[in-house]
Design a binder for these strands. Structure first.
Lengths: 212, 212
DNA sequence: CGTTGTTTTGAGATATGTCAACAGGGGTGG
DNA sequence: CCACCCCTGTTGACATATCTCAAAACAACG
């Protein structure tokens, strides 16, 4: 199945009967608060299993939107669940997925809380860097981020105006460079430190590469 | 097994071999950021299964501390896992737990992000109110919260000073009252609205009561 | 009745939000 | 190929929320 950029894959309130893996393209999962603000909860990149939450509970209360054109591999939720139920190895796999998911949400909460905008941004970028490396999707210190400032803002709990300003600061400080929709990490150590990550975060990511 | 207030049940980096259910008392799960700030991720109240995360993955990177004296029912992780592996109903139960857990973290992220302090506090209290009601632990519009301001601050990403100020505002506005460590919800509808919750949030909680 | 830990209050600093104007890019239709 | 428009990003001035530091009030507890 394919999807165009900006198309919705599922909406809050839906009862879904399919789950997916991402073959190509990016997507994000979000909620809309009562006051109309959007809050982005997580992103999906190629290779990701899409919507662990939906596998566990078909009644979703979040939405998923395509960030770019994308192609997906579709699974029937019931059939997949039946398979999982029978197959021990698959069950382990699901447990692993859940565990990762829980951990990553914990981390989101931990650093989104109250860190200043610069640190939030650094964490955001370096986190993606690590994910892309682990998936074997990039090699150098430059990668594509098909996001608008508004996405970043809705992810980190900032305003797009303030994201713009803070990005300018990071550029002026010589930490990063941005052209088109690609970001270039100029000063890796400083960025990792700003992000509150271990200095060997990236080496670890390279070591884990393609161990999906 | 029993635990005194302030005692640690597990620490980040531990490999745990036991999981628990809470018989009495409160606890909280937290991380310490590289800069020394503590971030509280979740709370446990009587009846809760303690550390779904630890069941899925024995190598934990968070800590759990007792908030009050507490008594726990201990399970051997391996044995419990073996049981779960054999028993279909238990597997469903675990799936349900994970699903709830994921959802609640989503919600944390959604409202912790950028809401003003008053709304965060309202959400925090009403959320506990709902949880306690569902567990059948309270009846009226008043309940005990064995927390210091610092816990609330570390949960919501605020300063304990600011928590104090904002609480004073809520009191002055006639929304709540606090004595000892018990909170009295004076204006339920306003509090629910502030918290960004449905006006029938509590009726629902009462309806679900003790369906643990 | 002191000691220690917690909450409250105040004054001033800083980070972030809001609103509004403008600039640039990439499409679209003429 | 150009003129226009819409969407996004940038910049500025100002308002506000939250933090910091420090002192004082209060509570719990031996």
């Amino acid at each position: 199945r394919t999807l165009r950029a900006r198309q919705l894959l599922m909406s809050a309130g839906d009862t879904v009967s399919s789950v997916f893996t991402v073959l190509s393209g990016w997507a994000f999962r979000f909620k809309v608060l009562p006051d109309g603000h959007r809050r982005i909860l997580s992103y999906y990149i190629p290779g990701d299993f899409l919507a662990t939450e939906a596998l566990l509970n078909p009644h979703v209360n979040f939405s998923i939107e395509a960030l770019t054109d994308m192609s997906l591999c579709v699974f029937d939720r019931d059939k997949l669940l039946a398979l999982v139920d029978e197959n021990r190895a698959l069950r382990q796999k699901v447990i692993y997925l859940c565990s990762r998911k829980l951990e990553s949400l914990d981390n989101r909460i931990a650093y989104i809380g109250t860190r200043p905008a610069g640190e939030k941004l650094a964490h955001f970028f370096m986190h993606f860097y690590g994910r892309l490396v682990r998936k074997g999707l990039i090699a150098g210190d430059r990668f594509e981020l098909p996001l608008r400032h508004e996405h970043i803002a809705d992810t980190l709990g900032l305003t797009s105006v303030h994201v713009s300003r803070t990005l300018s600061e990071l550029k002026r400080a010589g930490l990063i460079e941005i052209q088109n929709h690609a970001i270039h990490i100029l000063d890796q150590p400083s960025m990792l430190m700003l992000a509150g990550l271990d200095s060997d975060y990236l080496s670890k990511a390279y070591a884990e590469r393609k161990a999906s």
